[in-house]
Write a protein that binds this DNA or RNA. Structure first.
Ligand SMILES: [Zn+2]
Ligand SMILES: [Zn+2]
Ligand SMILES: [Zn+2]
Ligand SMILES: [Zn+2]
Lengths: 137, 137
DNA sequence: ATCAAGAGTGACAACCATTGTCAAAACACC
DNA sequence: GGTGTTTTGACAATGGTTGTCACTCTTGAT
């Protein structure tokens, strides 16, 4: 997404960050800061809400988690398998997420931008739908 | 974006809606509800903030305006030239917007979704960059 | 034009995600 | 252990957005 993957400043290892990591690893769907905070509580490993927000912010900055906006405009986070740039196919009903890579789209996006003289280009692309499991109703 | 363009219930014509329409027509970039509210004030045609939000919501529901989220998660609206489905190339600096149509991407998106068994599919796609005008710095 | 019914309005409160504050606690390193 | 820096967290504050509800306006019929 950014022009270049940079240094990624070192961070201290704390109980809180480990706890957040753990929840992220156990969660396959995108999750909001609020929900993550609740999940931590449920696990007994309470972490301050502000800390959850800060931690997620940091992870996002470091490219360790992907961020996108839910319908309500709430930011939701997810630890993705691929580190490289990719997109998502998300189930509107259950939240099931599939990571998508599309060289074609990447090329198309940058060519369109270039055609209009835009530089320092990035893009967002998400596909929503109802997954097979949820479809059988 | 939705599966089908539907009936679109009729709405009453009021001074407030006309005023909002006017601002939207005069604004080429995406604008937030707050900013639109301020713009209305500046024009002397004051409209309640709640009304601005409701009006934009309605317009969006009817597919009369496009909505997307700014970096800060704020919803921004724009009356686009094309009524049909399309996307945007937006300048991060000045907000200049170009409407984009991409049959290729449309096909790709639905084929990817189909491949994974997803139905009732929609997608969001926006390209961001620095426009030629803003680039010469 | 008059009128009734219901859609629309607006000032204000309420909500809620997110960020700011800052003293206390935890970490990393010597 | 000592020390300097980072991190934490309870709480306040911010800011966009929605809810409330009495009042007003548009519309369509009489
Ligand atoms: Zn599903
Ligand atoms: Zn991409
Ligand atoms: Zn520009
Ligand atoms: Zn499209």
């Amino acid at each position: 997404m950014s022009v270049r993957d940079q240094p990624v400043k070192e961070h201290r290892r704390t109980r809180q960050r480990a706890a957040v990591d753990e929840v992220l690893d156990d969660t396959t769907d995108f999750i909001s800061a609020q929900d993550l905070h609740a999940a931590l509580r449920a696990r007994g490993a309470g972490v301050g809400l502000a800390t959850v927000y800060r931690t997620l912010q940091t992870l996002a900055d470091d490219g360790k988690v992907d961020v996108l906006r839910s319908d309500g405009g709430e930011a939701v986070y997810r630890r993705c398998v691929r580190e490289e740039h990719h997109h998502h196919l998300v189930c509107r009903s259950c939240g099931a997420t599939v990571e998508i890579a599309g060289p074609t789209v990447e090329r198309w996006a940058s060519s369109v931008a270039e055609k209009h003289g835009f530089v320092d280009v990035s893009h967002t692309l998400e596909i929503f739908g109802t997954c097979p499991r949820c479809a059988q109703a």
